[in-house]
Nucleic acid binder design. Structure first.
Lengths: 210, 210
DNA sequence: TGATGTGAAGAGGTTCACAGCT
DNA sequence: AGCTGTGAACCTCTTCACATCA
């Protein structure tokens, strides 16, 4: 499968396409063309065709794209045909909220362990899981084979924990802590920072008040 | 002030620069050059200089940038010299977690109202605020003059609520609901979707297992 | 005929390399 | 001498326009 050479921006749009296609499938729509899919996604037809062309020749000229087949293809490229295991590090406000979020499981991601360093939280059981001590990080990661970590830890310990996670086999980190992580080659990091987003919004507000 | 013509990517990096500069100031560092700032931010010196040059000639050749002055400038461009008011729409798992998050206030964003449609939640008081009915949206927005909305609502009602928010004067939306919002010209939207981020991470995992 | 797939043109950002100040 | 500010080269992504094929 020709996966290399797909632009990063295309990859970031695939989950959106997937969501729209699943929606179409629910409505029993068997076929879409680039125009209608673009409308569903809020993009343009050329973008859709170009993006999908990177995954192979998935459409039929004069007809369009078969919804089910396209879902399969995109899922395969995103590597979510099998379920993926993730651990949650940090059981605070955000950590707790994320654990209860059904969206992860719906999209094929299973949270298989939760860690914290606060003795008051360790042992708490929630959603079928028990909060574990971060001391057990390495052992549990080995046992579960989880490859993804979602971090909602205080800023000052995040890099250190990330290092341990990587050493223990994690190769993808979704970081909600307001810290720029440094990770070795081959490990992917997605940084989420709501404060940053608010500041970008603020810029736009300031712009429009000239 | 020459704000137009600043690349969108530059704007998105300014909050990061700001964070690093505040950190430098805390360490009583009065002056930085593009090299050291780049290291703190995990970028390169050329990027820093180019970005800052869009804001004006803020440095001194042969010397570098004065930390305090740079903080002021970036804050001004981001429009966060005055505090900004935001409302939270949706008091569920995420909404509750966000309300307790001190990071917003620290960066100049005050959450001035919380809305929900669930009768069981309306009236609950939390962090000095009382959860209000979404029926009161328009009135409260007018009264508070909030320009930003943070949405953590169920997907199916989000667009509709966003329309009402925009009509009531909101011009920046931070959307945590897994829905692509359609908004009129002049309204800025930042979409946050953790599931999307996980799927992008999954792609990278799949890549490295070839 | 109708929609895809794609080379080519265009736009937007990043990196380079050096002129220009202090 | 040292570091900024910036034109120019380079690269990446988006949009266009059309050849291509069912």
């Amino acid at each position: 499968m020709e996966r290399a050479g797909i632009p990063a921006t295309t990859i970031q749009r695939l989950p959106l396409y997937l969501r729209c296609l699943l929606q179409a499938e629910e409505q029993r729509i068997p076929l879409v063309n680039s125009g209608t899919l673009a409308e569903m996604c809020g993009t343009n037809a050329a973008q859709i065709r170009k993006d999908l062309s990177y995954l192979g020749e998935l459409g039929t000229r004069g007809i369009g794209y078969e919804v089910r087949a396209l879902i399969e293809h995109i899922s395969a490229v995103l590597g979510i045909t099998e379920r993926r295991r993730a651990v949650l590090v940090g059981f605070g406000r955000f950590g707790g909220a994320l654990l209860g979020y059904p969206g992860f499981a719906e999209r094929g991601f299973d949270i298989v362990a939760v860690f914290d360093s606060d003795p008051d939280k360790i042992g708490v059981s929630v959603g079928g899981l028990t909060v574990l001590s971060v001391d057990e990080l390495e052992g549990v990661l080995q046992a579960t084979g989880a490859e993804i970590a979602i971090m909602t830890t205080p800023g000052d310990v995040t890099q250190e924990l990330a290092d341990r996670l990587v050493r223990a086999g994690v190769r993808g980190i979704l970081n909600l802590a307001p810290v720029r992580l440094v990770v070795p080659e081959g490990v992917a990091v997605r940084q989420v920072c709501l404060s940053t987003d608010l500041q970008v919004l603020s810029f736009h507000l300031a712009q429009n008040t000239l």
